[in-house]
């Protein structure tokens, strides 16, 4: 369970988040939808401690996160796959995965084996540089590297970015399976509302820095009046 309340973030004079409150229940996928510049990335970066908020609070599994360093927050079991995936291109697939285990201080060998079972394509390519992977494979690597840390909370920033529709579907299904199998709490930031709503339990909409109530994903999907707020929607 992660609960964000009355969160405000500004970059100098630009207010990116204005009194945002969102709750993401344990073991569920909560989508955060919104158009370009709505503040989605800022929200995740604030949870991870990369951005300091002006006011508000964030608690995850009982820990107050604000003021903690990003690496401390990560070691509390919060994995963040950043926008653009954050795969280290100069590292091999295996080095990227190892790094995830080393950062979280989980068992490297067992973790690698587990991720290779989940993502056989990563095993095939384990000696290749991440720079040589396709977009979909990179996203799998980013997911594997996050999951090797055995996180309780997974933050995903636009996993569908730049992927073909079929690959997007594949990634979304993978996320759903991960969540179902491990009781993971997921915050899924997306512009691709259609794909995200399909696998999400709850959805919140961000509109120029303001949050619009978290509701069951099916309700949000059905609500025509909300649609204009997340115009990035791929129909």
């Amino acid at each position: 369970m992660i609960s964000i309340s009355h969160l405000s973030v500004a970059y100098g004079a630009i207010v990116a988040l204005d009194d945002v409150s969102i709750e993401a229940p344990t073991g569920a996928i909560t989508a955060v939808l919104g158009a370009n510049g709505a503040g989605k990335t800022t929200l995740l970066r604030t949870i991870s401690g990369l951005v300091k908020p002006r006011s508000g609070s964030i608690t995850a599994n009982g820990h107050a996160l604000i003021g903690e360093r990003p690496d401390t927050i990560a070691r509390l079991g919060i994995a963040h796959v950043p926008e653009g995936r954050g795969v280290i291109a100069e590292f091999t697939v295996e080095e990227n995965l190892r790094l995830g285990a080393l950062g979280a201080k989980t068992n490297v060998t067992a973790g690698l084996e587990e991720q290779y079972t989940l993502f056989p394509v990563l095993k095939e390519r384990r000696k290749q540089y991440a720079a040589q992977l396709s977009g979909g494979e990179r996203q799998m690597l980013a997911l594997g590297r996050a999951m090797i840390a055995n996180p309780q909370i997974l933050l995903l920033d636009e996993p569908s970015l730049g992927l073909a529709p079929l690959v997007t579907q594949d990634i979304m299904n993978t996320i759903k399976t991960l969540c179902a199998n491990s009781g993971l709490t997921v915050i899924l930031v997306e512009q691709n509302a259609k794909s995200a709503l399909k696998i999400s339990d709850y959805a919140a909409v961000l509109h120029v820095g303001k949050s619009i109530a978290v509701r069951p994903a099916a309700e949000v999907a059905a609500d025509e009046s909300l649609r204009s707020y997340y115009l990035g929607m791929a129909e």
Binding site: P70, D71, F91, L99, L102, G103
Partner: peptide, 21 residues
């Protein structure tokens, strides 16, 4: 492993922090 963390911190400090390094 220490070397991998050293290289990661130099190459991609922000990503490394997000991984708990």
């Amino acid at each position: 492993s220490l070397g991998l963390k050293l290289r990661a911190s130099a190459l991609a400090p922000e990503v490394s922090k997000l991984l708990g390094i």
